[in-house]
């Protein structure tokens, strides 16, 4: 389960980073500063944790990367975001999904009135596949998430929180992303389900080489599965280190997240 010492991506020194965020500032409604200065990188095949308390700017950072800030009437007012070396700042989210960045939103956001399988299909629309290719890709996702297969005809709104989280991830994977932005996947879920979801993330990362940038409040679980981590506080990166180093500090809760957060 400790992936930190088994993967070669701890230090993305040599190659070009897949994602590079340089000093971005994000402002809502032209007045409210949500992210003041965040820089981070994600290397190909890497799992990176973005840690911080509520309101630290994790979600906004992810939305800035995926382009969804615009839907919240916010703007990346400074800095730049590069994906595979190209500037992607301000590009519409649906176009970024086509380029290989997919965002799994905080709170799952499944299409409640669509069945589980219809939800998954929407993820494949982007690639305009034939019927047989879609079936093949669906089978692959059901392979990773066997629980979804048993619920395929159920409206997604009637499935459990864990199933919805799996569905949101599965739907995102059907866009064939290179980078998945995963926002607070542990929210409101039992520890055993959280563990299961992070296991799947690790499996996907190993077998498909998909990169993940995971925003989390749950430090313990996310760092056990990540290669590196950033800690954001009040819209700035306060700390950046390998997952191992961050775990070893042992004082992250006290410093940045408050002691109230449960240790899973």
């Amino acid at each position: 389960m400790t992936t930190g010492d088994t993967t070669p991506h701890d230090a993305p020194s040599g190659g070009e980073p897949l994602l590079e965020v340089r000093g971005i500032e994000v402002i809502y409604d032209g007045a409210i500063l949500a992210v003041a200065d965040v820089s981070l990188t994600v290397a190909p095949g890497e799992i990176v944790a973005l840690l911080g308390a509520n309101g630290a700017g994790k979600s906004t950072t992810l939305k800035a990367i995926s382009g969804l800030v615009v839907a919240d009437r916010a703007l990346v007012s400074r800095g730049e975001i590069r994906f595979r070396g190209e500037d992607i700042t301000g590009i519409a989210p649906n176009l970024l999904a086509a380029r290989g960045i997919v965002h799994v939103l905080e709170g799952r956001h499944v299409f409640g009135h669509l069945t589980v399988e219809e939800n998954l299909r929407t993820g494949a629309f982007l690639r305009r596949l034939g019927r047989r290719e879609i079936e093949h890709d669906l089978e692959e996702i059901y392979g990773y998430f066997p629980r979804l297969r048993t619920k395929r005809k159920t409206p997604a709104g009637l499935t459990s929180g864990g199933e919805q989280q799996m569905l949101a991830i599965g739907r995102a994977l059907l866009t064939r992303p290179e980078l998945v932005l995963l926002d607070e996947p542990s929210m409101g879920l039992a520890p055993i389900i959280v563990e299961e979801i992070f296991e799947i993330v690790t499996t996907l990362n190993r077998s498909k080489g998909t990169s993940f940038l995971v925003a989390e409040q749950n430090i313990a679980v996310s760092l056990r599965h990540a290669h590196r981590g950033y800690v954001v506080d009040s819209g700035r990166v306060a700390l950046a280190a390998s997952a191992r180093e961050l775990l070893d500090r042992g004082d992250l809760h006290e410093i940045y997240l408050g002691v109230a957060n449960a240790v899973a």
């Binding site: 649906n94 999904a97 009135h113 669509l114 866009t175």
Partner: peptide, 17 residues
């Protein structure tokens, strides 16, 4: 299906392209 997806959740629809 896309239309119903948009009706359910516009942001999620955008996020998957």
């Amino acid at each position: 299906i896309s239309l119903r997806a948009v009706a359910d959740d516009t942001r999620a629809a955008l996020s998957i392209g």
